[in-house]
Amino acid sequence: MAGGGFSKLPNGKVVVALTLPRPVTGSGTVRVLVLAGNRARALTRLRNLGLRAVYLRGNAEPPTPDEITAVLHHPDGLLWRTTPECLEELWMPIRALLRPPRPPAHAGAG
């Protein structure tokens, strides 16, 4: 279901990068980065968050050096941003992707 790939780090950990349909809204795609002990554990982390149909077949779209740096410097080791990449857009924690969108505020309410 996903385009993606992985890079093995010198310390033995793996960074997996996947391009997935955007959860919740279903419109567009997102690039998700996961730092884990191995590829299977990275996919398990995503499945445990509710992204059930996540698979990695091949290594066609491995993480870039910038993506690896981003995920290594994040405390959760799990990030996303919309695709195609916009240089002004920052990487965000995965919980921001999985929560439902807020309804618009009503003008003049109160």
Score class of each variant (00 low, 15 high):
R95V: 09
L79A: 14
K13P: 01
G108C: 13
L72I: 09
P104N: 06
R47S: 14
M1H: 10
R41H: 11
A109P: 01
K8R: 12
G4N: 04
N11M: 01
G58F: 07
L56S: 04
V30P: 01
V34K: 00
P23M: 06
C86W: 12
T25W: 02
P23I: 03
G26Q: 00
R31S: 09
V16R: 03
L35D: 01
R99G: 10
L78F: 09
P62Q: 02
G12T: 05
E61D: 15
N38V: 09
A36M: 14
V34F: 00
D76E: 15
A53D: 15
A107L: 14
A109Q: 07
Y55K: 13
H73I: 06
G58A: 05
P101T: 07
L18H: 00
T25Y: 00
C86I: 15
V30E: 05
S7Q: 08
A107F: 11
A107Q: 11
N48P: 02
G4T: 05
G4L: 05
R102C: 13
V34G: 00
F6Q: 01
D66A: 15
M92H: 10
P23T: 03
R99P: 07
P23A: 04
H74Y: 03
L90Q: 12
A60R: 08
M1S: 12
G50Y: 00
L9K: 08
L51S: 01
A53F: 11
R22C: 09
E61A: 12
R41K: 15
R39N: 03
D66G: 12
T19M: 03
A2C: 04
V14N: 03
W91D: 07
I68H: 03
P104M: 07
A53T: 12
G26E: 01
N38E: 14
W80L: 03
N59M: 11
P65V: 12
G50C: 00
G108M: 13
R22P: 02
A42I: 08
G37D: 10
V15P: 06
L78T: 09
G77K: 09
G4F: 03
L9S: 08
P103T: 08
G3P: 00
Y55N: 13
L98E: 09
L33M: 04
